[in-house]
Amino acid sequence: AQVHVDGVTYDFDNPEEAEKFAREMAKRKGGTVEVKNDQWHVE
């Protein structure tokens, strides 16, 4: 699973880890999390 944050792509073998990371980053940035094509996007 991939997580996109500020133009940087992070690869995770485990989708749950990807989701956890995406939500944590969004919380830190005060942003939102979107899922597109099985990829997490932190805005």
Rank of each mutant, 00 (worst) to 15 (best):
Q2Y: 07
Y10N: 00
E34T: 15
N14T: 13
K36M: 09
F21P: 00
E43S: 14
T32K: 12
V33G: 03
V33I: 09
E16D: 12
R28F: 13
R23F: 13
E24W: 10
E24N: 05
V35A: 06
V35W: 15
V8Q: 09
R23A: 09
A18Q: 00
Q39Y: 06
Q39T: 11
A1W: 15
R28M: 15
V33L: 10
Q2P: 02
G30E: 08
T9F: 07
D13L: 10
E34Q: 13
R23L: 11
E24T: 04
V5L: 09
G31H: 07
T32G: 05
V3W: 00
E43K: 15
V5M: 13
A22S: 02
V5S: 06
E19K: 05
G31A: 09
E34D: 09
V33A: 10
K36V: 13
A22E: 04
V8P: 00
F12H: 00
V42I: 09
H41I: 13
R23S: 07
E17P: 00
V5E: 02
A1S: 13
Q2L: 08
V5H: 06
K27R: 11
V3M: 01
E19L: 07
T9V: 13
D6K: 04
K36H: 12
G7M: 03
G30N: 10
R23H: 13
K36G: 05
R23Y: 14
D6H: 07
H4F: 13
D38Q: 11
V35Y: 15
Q2T: 12
A18R: 02
G30D: 08
N14E: 08
D6V: 03
K36C: 14
E19R: 05
H4L: 12
A18K: 00
R28T: 12
D38Y: 10
D13M: 09
E34Y: 15
A22T: 00
F21N: 01
T9E: 04
E43F: 15
E34M: 15
N37V: 06
K29E: 10
W40L: 07
R28G: 08
V5A: 06
P15L: 08
H4D: 05
P15K: 12
H4K: 08
T9N: 04
F21Q: 01
E19Q: 06
E17L: 09
G30F: 05
K20V: 09
E24Y: 08
Y10M: 02
D13Q: 10
K27S: 10
T9S: 06
E16A: 12
E16T: 09
A22G: 02
F21A: 02
F21R: 01
M25Y: 09
D11C: 15
N37M: 07
A18D: 00
R23D: 08
D13E: 10
G7H: 04
Q39V: 15
K27M: 11
F12G: 00
Q39E: 10
G31K: 02
P15N: 11
Q2F: 08
K29H: 14
K20D: 11
E19A: 07
R23W: 12
T32W: 15
F12A: 00
W40K: 05
V8A: 09
V33H: 04
Q39H: 11
D11P: 08
E43P: 05
V3A: 03
N14L: 08
M25K: 02
T32H: 12
V42W: 03
H4P: 00
A22R: 04
E43L: 15
G30I: 02
E19V: 05
E43A: 13
K27W: 11
H41D: 04
M25W: 11
N14Y: 08
K27I: 14
Q39K: 09
A18T: 00
V33P: 04
V35S: 08
D6G: 09
K29W: 15
D13W: 07
V33E: 04
Q2H: 08
A1E: 03
T32V: 11
V33F: 07
G7S: 04
V42T: 03
F21S: 00
V42A: 03
E43M: 15
N37I: 07
A26V: 06
W40D: 03
A1D: 05
D38M: 11
D13S: 11
F12I: 01
E17S: 08
E34H: 15
H4M: 10
A26D: 04
G31P: 03
D6P: 01
D13R: 08
G31I: 04
A1I: 12
T9G: 03
G7Q: 03
R23T: 10
D13G: 07
K36W: 11
A1L: 13
E17A: 10
K20Q: 12
G30H: 08
H41P: 03
E34N: 13
V3Q: 01
G31V: 09
P15T: 09
T9A: 07
K36Y: 12
D13H: 08
G31Y: 14
Q2R: 12
G7E: 03
H4G: 01
E43W: 14
E24D: 10
Q2K: 13
G31N: 04
E24G: 02
E17T: 09
F21Y: 06
T9D: 03
E43N: 15
K27V: 12
Q2S: 11
D13P: 11
Q2N: 04
G30S: 04
Y10I: 06
W40V: 05
K20N: 11
E17Y: 04
T9K: 08
V5I: 12
H41T: 12
Y10F: 10
A22I: 02
H41C: 14
N14D: 13
A26R: 03
V42N: 04
D11W: 14
W40F: 13
N14W: 07
D11K: 13
W40H: 05
E17H: 06
N14V: 07
M25N: 04
N37W: 06
G31S: 07
Q39N: 07
V33R: 00
K20R: 12
P15S: 12
E17R: 05
A26W: 02
E16W: 13
V42R: 03
E17N: 05
K29F: 15
A18L: 01
M25Q: 11
G7L: 03
H4I: 13
V35I: 13
